[in-house]
C-alpha cells in the first residue's frame, strides 16, 4: 500500500458526503418563500375498490398536490406510470403526493395492489 489507510478512508468518507450533498442539493432551501402561490390541492378517495372521483380535472403547467385517502380496510399502493409516482397508503390514512407541472393530457393511475382499481386525471 502506497497510500496511508487513514487518508484513503477520509477520501471515501468525503466522496460519500459529496454524493449525498449532490443528490440533495436544495433541501436546505426548499421552504418556498411565503409570497409563492399556494400549490392547488385535489382530493381522491379509494374505497370499495374504486377511486372517488374516478376522473379528476387539474390545471396543467403547475405543481399540484393530490391528497389521497385510503378508506379501505387494507393497504393500497397508489401508482401511476404516467405520473411516475408510487406510494403505499396504510388503511385509514390520507397522504400527499406532489405531481407536475404537467403537460395537458390524460394521466392514468391505479392501485398497484389491486390493479383493476383504476382512475385518471385530465390536465388542461
Amino acid at each position: 500500500m502506497s497510500l496511508p489507510t487513514i487518508r484513503h478512508r477520509a477520501l471515501a468518507a468525503s466522496v460519500l458526503g459529496a454524493a449525498l450533498l449532490a443528490a440533495l442539493p436544495s433541501t436546505a432551501q426548499t421552504p418556498p418563500p411565503s409570497s409563492a402561490p399556494a400549490t392547488p390541492s385535489f382530493t381522491l378517495t379509494m374505497r370499495n375498490r374504486a377511486f372517488d372521483p374516478p376522473s379528476l380535472d387539474v390545471p396543467a403547467g403547475q405543481k399540484i398536490e393530490l391528497r389521497v385517502t385510503n378508506a379501505e380496510t387494507i393497504a393500497v399502493e397508489f401508482e401511476s406510470d404516467d405520473l411516475r409516482r408510487e406510494k403505499v397508503i396504510a388503511p385509514g390514512l390520507t397522504v400527499s403526493i406532489f405531481i407536475g407541472p404537467l403537460r395537458a393530457g390524460r394521466y392514468e393511475f391505479k392501485d398497484d395492489f389491486h390493479s383493476s382499481t383504476r382512475g385518471h386525471l385530465i390536465a388542461k
Binding site: 454524493a19 449532490a22 443528490a23 426548499t30 406532489f98 405531481i99 407541472p101
Partner: peptide
C-alpha cells in the same frame, strides 16, 4: 447502478415536494 438509485431517491424527494422537479418529464 448507484447513479440509478440516486435518481430514484431524487424521484421520491420530488414526490414529497422536497426537491423541485426541474422539468417534470
Amino acid at each position: 447502478l448507484a447513479a440509478g438509485l440516486s435518481a430514484q431517491a431524487a424521484g421520491f424527494l420530488i414526490q414529497a415536494d422536497l426537491l423541485p422537479a426541474l422539468g417534470d418529464q
